[in-house]
């Protein structure tokens, strides 16, 4: 996760505390895991503002059923349904869940 985004998430977590949820849209599972770990357990590459900062934020992939249920079906159809055919939604949601189960607090 690039350094500016790490800083933005750190700032948001400080401002909103436990009301903060991170939703990822990453297209590959390996990347999704790294992003999820960064916002929950700290930057695993030790390069950015979240290095050694375990925010414990609840993190979900947008394809997670919990998030999907919250979305307006028309907006989902218009914005996301095409990528649902292109990507592997279950694998992406599961990859992020694996990290969430280990490091996130206050999950939905």
């Amino acid at each position: 996760m690039d350094l500016q985004n790490q800083q933005r998430i750190k700032d948001a977590a400080e401002k909103f505390g436990s009301d903060c949820i991170v939703i990822l849209g990453s297209s590959d599972a390996e990347g999704a895991e790294i992003y999820a770990e960064t916002v929950s357990n700290g930057d695993p590459t030790y390069a950015g503002p979240l290095a050694g900062v375990p925010l414990g934020l609840p993190v979900y992939h947008v394809f997670d059923q919990t998030i999907r249920d919250e979305c307006d079906p028309a907006a989902w159809e218009e914005q996301i349904s095409m990528m649902e055919m292109v990507l592997d939604p279950e694998a992406l949601a599961a990859a992020v869940k694996g990290i969430r189960d280990q490091f996130s607090k206050n999950v939905l």
Partner: peptide, 9 residues
């Protein structure tokens, strides 16, 4: 048009 891949495509 929006930035979603779907909108771009």
């Amino acid at each position: 048009a929006g930035a979603a891949p779907q909108a771009v495509a």
